[in-house]
Design a protein around this nucleic acid. Sequence first.
DNA 1: GCTTAATCCTTCCGATCTGGACAAATTCAT
DNA 2: ATGAATTTGTCCAGATCGGAAGGATTAAGC
Lengths: 220, 220
Amino acid sequence: MSEAVAATEAEKPARKQQQRSLVTQHKLLDAATEAFSENGFKGTSTRDIAERAGVHHPLITYHFKNKDQLWRAATDRIFREFNISLVKAMAEVSEADPRARAEAFVRTYVRYAYQRPALHKIILQESSKPSDRLDWLVENHLRPLFDEVVKSLKVLQEMGIAPAGNPALLFNMIRVSAGGLLALSLEIKGTSDIDFDDEGELDKLADMIIRVFFPSSAGD
Amino acid sequence: MSEAVAATEAEKPARKQQQRSLVTQHKLLDAATEAFSENGFKGTSTRDIAERAGVHHPLITYHFKNKDQLWRAATDRIFREFNISLVKAMAEVSEADPRARAEAFVRTYVRYAYQRPALHKIILQESSKPSDRLDWLVENHLRPLFDEVVKSLKVLQEMGIAPAGNPALLFNMIRVSAGGLLALSLEIKGTSDIDFDDEGELDKLADMIIRVFFPSSAGD
DNA sequence: GCTTAATCCTTCCGATCTGGACAAATTCAT
DNA sequence: ATGAATTTGTCCAGATCGGAAGGATTAAGC
């Protein structure tokens, strides 16, 4: 953990954090996010991360203590940003009816999953076997979000908008149809000739999700 | 590749393959499948595989030449078995109507994804970034299967059984709802209190997939 | 059966990479 | 300009990969 971060919970630092330090941390977090999402925790070396960031590798120890803490910092940032994005988007449609809100949720989710594929790739990477990191991820980021969303989904089910059944199961189907598919975009380009970089392709995915999971709506 | 395998495509071997050699290869393939599915290609060491198999590591060089060939052999085996399983299951319902066949497909797919989580985990691992392995996987196993299934799905769409839209996109949603969800089972246990090891939970997933993707059927 | 040669396994080695530690050098806020 | 914050260069002990070389096992032919 960097001194600056530590300072927020300890006594005041004698000196203010330097600008270049923030830049270095930012570069390391970006590089770490990318590397971990591609090769997983075990498959990623701190040297690789440092190289991607264009920085000498001992700086990881200096700023983040070790590989594990760097993973946590990188994951924490990307999930925080995701949550903020989601909350903001939902606030914008707070006046709309439940179905419109559900549609807005799906479209936001799809768009974000496309913009930051690392987010879902990291989930997939870490879910492949038990680990403290997975527990931490579930506890701090996934569970809070899921509980919230599943509650709303339950309402939609009671209104007959969403199909019946375990709402948690339903939500998981929806989110892998969005996030999972986009995390697999490379493979899907090869198997199905679908390129989500193409104009409109992303909307087609969102449309399909809405049509399938919230039927009786024409879905565009 | 082992001498025995090479022999099938070269001139006859002077000697027959020994039994223990087959056992060793089998143990290595099992261990490799498990290790690669958990830690990805880069995150897995040949030492780790050998240790899981209870075998000295130079045997990997002897039987499979190197890590890459071992990955190919392991992946090839698991995908072949999957295809056989699928073909056999579909042959058993060859007389049934299209909807019943679709249901059978989903149930088989779900059951297999549960039994061999490594299959989908390996897909997820390899799709995280471009590689020769991903190309090989797409070309040799994914693409042939997908082309076949998407054709059938198109028919279902024309009959009004499956929702409209790009059939390839639809199929991808279905298969991640099955395989993706089961590959994520560890995470889902933590976030959603759904344990696919519990009796009946697997059927609930299959039911939900059928209900959502092939509506107008009660789905049970 | 007994030999013998192909097949299979084990013990080793060298080069590289791993996460992390440390002190010396540099940069910058005060 | 002073000293803390940051960066750099270097080192370590252990793990990694691929492979060489020789020993053990076993099928095939006598």
